[in-house]
Amino acid sequence: MANTFSRRRFIGSLLYLTALLFSGILLFRSYRSYRAGLDFSTLIARSRARWRYDDPLDATELRCLQQYIDVLAPDDDSPGALKVGVDQRIIAKSSDDPDYRQTLRQGILRINPLAQNKFGCPFHQLTADQVHEIILISEQAKRYSSERLLFDRLREDTFSYYYVAPESWQSLCYQGPPQPVGFSGYQQPLESCDQS
């Protein structure tokens, strides 16, 4: 009897201590995140994404990305980012690099509730104008929040992959790449696209 009691008390104390430890860790992490300027929603997004670290992006996440990229560099007189395959390069990068994929996923987990709150539907169902508004909010969010990191990453990579596509150069009058022909008219002003 005495043995059972003390074992029960031992297990109880162990559970209690474990709970204490976990809340301590949680508190410490929250404090650290607070110091780093992260808000609660970002923390939630991060812990949800953590469980799916190894999973590839799912169809809805891919759709979100495409919506986002399309608004960052849309079609006009020249083809937009989707037409030149920017989304495919970003998706390929996310398949190779789990940390990159995590940044994208955490951001998507944040912009979904933003879309829901503002427009009453998830991000992938928004119109281009609505996506525009959510991107604006993300751009202005705190520097290390998940939605801001998503914005920074996607702006950087969309432009990198978009402006390496020769289709994007025509409207800039840029006749790159630098080689093999170089820029023989380099001493003269640029009068028309033909001379660049």
Binding site: L72, A73, P74, S160, L172, Y174
Partner: peptide, 23 residues
């Protein structure tokens, strides 16, 4: 000396306005 760095470092913003400003 190339469009990628212009897009990232020289021209602010994104979207249609960014493309126009790039030109």
């Amino acid at each position: 000396a190339g469009p990628v760095n212009y897009a990232k470092r020289v021209v602010a913003g994104w979207g249609l306005a960014h493309k126009q400003k790039m030109r």
